[in-house]
Structure formats: C-alpha cells, structure tokens
C-alpha cells in the first residue's frame, strides 16, 4: 500500500496499485502510480548498487606525478608526464585529448592495466603499483568495471554468460550468478535477450550488455573508453543516459574517455590532456555547450 495524491482533487489516496481510480473524483491515477513505482524502483536499485561497505574516502582515484615512459630501442617516449588528478567518489568525469596525448595510457594506469614508470596512482587509497598480480586481478574484478569502444563481449558466450563471467571470477554461486545476471540485464533493458549471442545483438544492445557486465561485481568505478565511439548518435545517447542514470542513482564513479559532446554535456568535470600533461580542467557549469536534439527525438 502506498499513498498518492490525486492530481485533480488533491485528495490523498491509499492503494496497492491495483485500483487506480481516485475514489472521490474518479480521476485516472495510473500515471501517478506508475511514476511513483518507477521512482521507488530506482531508489531501491541505487540503494543496492551503492557501495557503502567501503570506508568512504572522498577521492576514489588520486594520481601523484604519474609518469609513464615507453622505451623504443634507444628512443624514450614519455606518454605521461607527471599527472596529478583527484577524482571524487561519485563523479562523472570525461577525459578529452587528441590521439597520442597519453589519454589511453592514463586510462590504463587507473584501470590497473599498466604500471607507471614514476609517480603513483591510488584507487581507494591503495597504491596500484604496489599490488601483486593476484591483488591487481582482484581489484580489476571487484573495484573497476570496464566498458570498451568495441564492446569486447566474449563472442562465444550469450549475453547472460558474458554478464556472469566476472561473477565466476569473484566466486559467486551459480544461482546467485544467474539471478544477478538476469536482473542486471533487465536493468539495462535487455530482459528479452538473455540467451542471445553478441553477434545476434545490435551495437547498442551489445554495449548495454557491456554496461551490465561492468556492473557485475558492484564496482566503485566504471572506466569507459569511448563507449559511444562505435555507435550511432541515437544509441550513443541511450548509453550515455544509462551511464548518467547509474551515476546519479547509485553513485558509481564514471570515468570516460570521449570526444562525444553529449557525453561532455552530462559530465561533472572535463579533463583535457595534451602531450602527457593535464592541459586544463573544466567544470560543466563553466562551459557553454549547445547539444542539439536529434531528429525525431522528443525531449
């Protein structure tokens, strides 16, 4: 039973959602009830995905003098040149930069995929460079969710199996995995596509599966490398909306590399990287951005 306010007569109505007519003025309450239920679902999902078991440090990612030098024969190429950046928990951060700017290298550092030549990168106040291979794998499995430009689903597995794969590594029981996987796919709107192979899904759907997979072990950070790069405008927008919604509702930190203005539009901060250094950091409020509506789209 929940209480609703009738939009026509202002009377308070109590209903379980089966009777959706106002008893005094017979107004249709279906819209109000649906809205309320949807809001409640989101709150519950947010509550569920919110990671409150970790001691909350204000900054989830901190880098100090992060430097990475690649040695190619006798030539030394510095991809990163002393990057200091703090990323707040629950932030939606976009990283921009031309190709070869060190963007990818920076990404790999945060994701624990590469080790810095100098400096350090802290995730949850853990220095990634100090971790053993096993601890690093644990960190990748539990703390970070990856979304790739090319989706990178395992082609021989169904959508559900793709989502449950990180759960296998995390040691979940098979019942738990099935149920969670199913719900995560429902969360991204693919409830009818559980047993489809990636090749049977559209690009946007594949990326949705990838989002569900990234959420598999309730990560604190989602690292998205050009998540809309291989999608058309409309499906790209859907993925951005999905990510933003997850960010707002569950407080997961999202760090994305992107050129997509729609992505910039929903970001809290935009970091510009050039020649292995941070060129400037902008706040969303400070920049003027006109994102036009797409043809045929209703806003």
């Amino acid at each position: 039973m929940a209480k609703y306010v009738c939009p026509r007569c202002g009377e308070s109505v109590e209903t379980s959602g089966i009777v959706t007519v106002c008893p005094s003025c017979h107004a249709d309450l279906r819209g109000v009830v649906a809205e309320e239920q949807h809001a409640r679902t989101r709150r519950a999902a947010a509550e569920l995905l919110r990671d409150d078991s970790v001691t909350t440090h204000e900054y989830i990612v901190r880098t100090r003098g992060l430097t990475r030098i690649y040695r190619m024969g006798d030539v030394e190429v510095s991809a990163l040149n002393g990057v200091d950046l703090d990323i707040r928990r629950g932030e939606y951060l976009s990283i921009m930069g031309p190709s070869g700017s060190g963007k990818s290298t920076f990404f790999n550092m945060i994701g624990g995929l590469d080790k810095p030549t100098a400096g350090s990168c802290y995730i949850n106040e853990t220095d990634m460079a100090q971790l053993s291979a096993h601890e690093l794998a644990w960190q990748r499995c539990h703390t970070i969710g990856y979304i790739f430009q090319t989706f990178n689903l395992i082609p021989v597995m169904t959508a559900l199996e793709n989502v449950t794969l990180p759960m296998i590594f995390a040691g979940a029981t098979s019942d738990e995995m099935l149920e969670r996987g199913r719900l995560l796919l429902e969360l991204v709107g693919l409830e009818g596509r559980l047993h489809h192979k990636p090749s049977e899904l559209s690009g946007g759907q594949q990326q949705r599966v990838a989002v569900a997979r990234a959420l598999a072990n309730q990560p604190a950070i989602i690292l998205a490398d050009e998540p809309t790069g291989n999608l058309d405008l409309h499906t790209g927008k859907e993925i951005i909306d999905l990510l933003k919604e997850l960010n707002v509702e569950s407080g997961v930190t999202i760090i994305s590399a992107t050129h997509d203005l729609k992505m910039i539009d929903v970001s809290d901060r935009i970091v510009h990287i050039r020649d292995g250094k941070i060129e400037r950091i902008e706040r969303r409020e400070d920049i003027e951005l006109e994102v036009g509506t797409l043809g045929g789209e209703q806003q």
């Binding site: 679902t41 989101r42 078991s53 019942d175 429902e186």
Partner: peptide, 20 residues
C-alpha cells in the same frame, strides 16, 4: 531502465547478507 520493484528486492536479497 524499467525494472519492477520485486526484481530489485530479489536483487537486494541475493546480493545482501554475507555475499555483499
């Protein structure tokens, strides 16, 4: 992004407790 309340409750149940 539509999931029913019941699903979320179930999700909470299975990921709750010791598994969380």
């Amino acid at each position: 992004m539509t999931i029913s309340m019941m699903d979320v409750k179930r999700l909470a149940e299975i990921s709750g407790g010791g598994g969380r």
